[in-house]
Design a binder for these strands. Structure first.
Lengths: 146, 146
DNA sequence: ATAGCTGCAAACGGTTTGCCTCACA
DNA sequence: TGTGAGGCAAACCGTTTGCAGCTAT
């Protein structure tokens, strides 16, 4: 594979952004080189994923996020405030072992997020409309309960 | 809320189909009443979800699936053959306890699927192109590795 | 000369929205 | 009679595709 400038920029963007949607990655790349097209970003992300340089995680709603973290983590997404919490994948090891033993299923804990309610939202009695304030939403705007 | 015929049919479809995408639910409803529109299905599913009659699960790719199972289960999706395996949610209880204790995070195990590789796909040495045959795909056509 | 990468635009699947009409309390 | 439910079409977001031009071999 040829590491073209576009591909390098996409990879760099994934590295600097951490967890980002294709759109966000595209925006980042375009700051440096506005002509780069989003379809190139998608094609490149597929490619980089095939060769193992990046991976994507489904957070439940909308767009997946891409990252190239060498040390993966598990994502917990709060379906009240949409906050994304990262925890150590080791937490899933007992479960992974059980699934392997009873089902022969090899768990890939980083690929899909786990859903639930974060400590903050659990303590507040369901703030009816707007989300919990002052809570760093790692990614997106709060609407659909994930 | 008024339980209109459309709403009843959507609920029935969710019940008979088990896990189905909004499109599939719409198709089922339309067999009985072809004029029902997919936007009604979406609106109704939202509504039924708000009042707790149904819930949806993200399988990672495309459309979520809706169900109204009283006994929920956890979904394992194989990212090689796209097969969806259902396991007892009790398997996640130790993890849920740990997350609750260390993070105050209340896990909702049924809402998002877990990803990995099923026993069959793990044993075959990566069949390059086409998916594992004779394997009941619970839902969809095999392309994107989830 | 050739392969393959890119930009562009169009199409796509899934979902939401606005609007107008209709039925029912 | 007014509220809200449903049908329809259009818009929307995220993603993929076909094509044509370009670039590096």
């Amino acid at each position: 594979m040829r590491m073209t400038p576009q591909r390098q920029m996409v990879l760099d963007a994934v590295r600097t952004l951490g967890h980002a949607t294709p759109e966000a990655i595209c925006a980042e790349v375009q700051q440096q080189s506005p002509a780069v097209n989003i379809s190139t970003v998608y094609r490149t992300l597929d490619l980089l994923e095939q060769i193992g340089l990046v991976r994507h995680t489904h957070l439940g709603h909308g767009a997946p996020t891409y990252s190239c973290d060498p040390h993966e983590h598990v994502h917990l997404v709060c379906h009240s405030c949409q906050q994304v919490i990262e925890v150590e994948p080791e937490l899933l090891e007992p479960l992974a072992a059980t699934l392997a033993a009873t089902r022969g299923f090899t768990l890939d804990p980083a690929h899909l997020a786990l859903s639930g309610q974060c400590a903050n939202c659990a303590s507040q009695p369901a703030p009816a409309d707007q989300p919990v304030p002052g809570q760093g939403h790692t990614t997106r705007n709060p609407e659909e309960p994930v």
